[in-house]
């Protein structure tokens, strides 16, 4: 079930340059959301018609709260407006949207979570949920940054965290793929979210080692619920809904097994 809910802003903070963390009180959505899903965020400036799809960073079911962590994409953009909201302000949300990571499939396996840049936030709730599953999971996280770190402690408290930075200021110099090569990693299953080149490199690596690898895709969206066909990605097979080789990122995804889609 999806809800359109007027959410109360609880707190907002800039946690790295241009990266904002926002806690929202949205109990209906929080009650049903799972890691890897996203919400459509509607802005209060009504000249901005389209919602911003933003992944869930944390889900607090008990308190009915959601955390989103997002990047301000530029001056005068919708995300800049979003970053101006303060405690007590209200915004409309629609969610939870999309499918999320298949946590059950990972149970009892050696799991590698991989995030790049603004694809890192959904890994926080994902590692929390994996660690809370019965039987305990063997989880390792790779996080790739340009330079400044964010959410590292939020994730690092739950599992082993390895970091790469493009400028070498923390961890391995380069990208998450350099960590994978350096450590010769070979997990059973991978959950990843990040920029397209990272997802492409992960897919090539996963296919070459015959690993199961789920990737979270991103595309410009309009409706967010699968009706407008704005946010499709190419699929390997003819999709049963579209009847062509297109899947809807917002509804069929955003998480796909990497072999299902062209990256």
């Amino acid at each position: 079930m999806k809800y359109r809910e007027l959410a109360n802003i609880d707190r907002q903070a800039e946690i790295a340059e241009g990266i904002f963390s926002l806690w929202l009180h949205a109990p209906e959505i929080a009650a049903e959301a799972v890691p890897g899903q996203f919400v459509s965020v509607y802005l209060n400036d009504k000249s901005r018609l389209l919602p911003r799809p933003i992944s869930l960073c944390e889900i607090d079911r008990e308190e009915g709260r959601l955390r989103i962590v997002y990047r301000v994409t530029g001056k005068g953009r919708g995300t800049e407006e979003l970053s101006s909201y303060r405690k007590g302000d209200k915004i409309w949300l629609l969610g939870p949207l999309g499918n999320g990571f298949p946590l059950k499939e990972a149970q009892g396996k050696q799991i590698l979570l991989v995030g790049g840049g603004i694809g890192i936030p959904p890994l926080v709730e994902t590692v929390k949920a994996l660690k809370a599953m019965p039987g305990g999971s063997d989880v390792r996280i790779l996080a790739g940054y340009r330079n400044e770190l964010f959410l590292a402690e939020d994730m690092g408290q739950y599992a082993d965290l390895l970091i790469s930075t493009e400028d070498g200021s923390s961890g391995t110099k380069g990208t998450v793929m350099d960590i994978i090569r350096e450590k010769s990693l070979k997990p059973d299953i991978v959950f990843a979210c990040g920029p397209r080149p990272m997802l492409k490199a992960l897919k090539d690596w996963a296919v070459s080692l015959d690993l199961t690898c789920y990737i979270s895709m991103e595309e410009r969206m309009a409706c967010g619920i699968g009706a407008c066909l704005g946010c499709v990605c190419l699929s390997e097979e003819v999709d049963s809904h579209s009847n062509v080789r297109n899947k809807r990122v917002c509804k069929d995804g955003p998480v796909f097994e990497c072999r299902e889609v062209e990256v």
């Binding site: 410009r220 704005g230 499709v232 062509v244 080789r245």
Partner: peptide
């Protein structure tokens, strides 16, 4: 069936 155009397919304007 028609596959439609490549993405990006949508963008917000004023």
């Amino acid at each position: 069936p028609w596959p439609g155009n490549p993405v990006p397919r949508v963008v917000e304007t004023a």
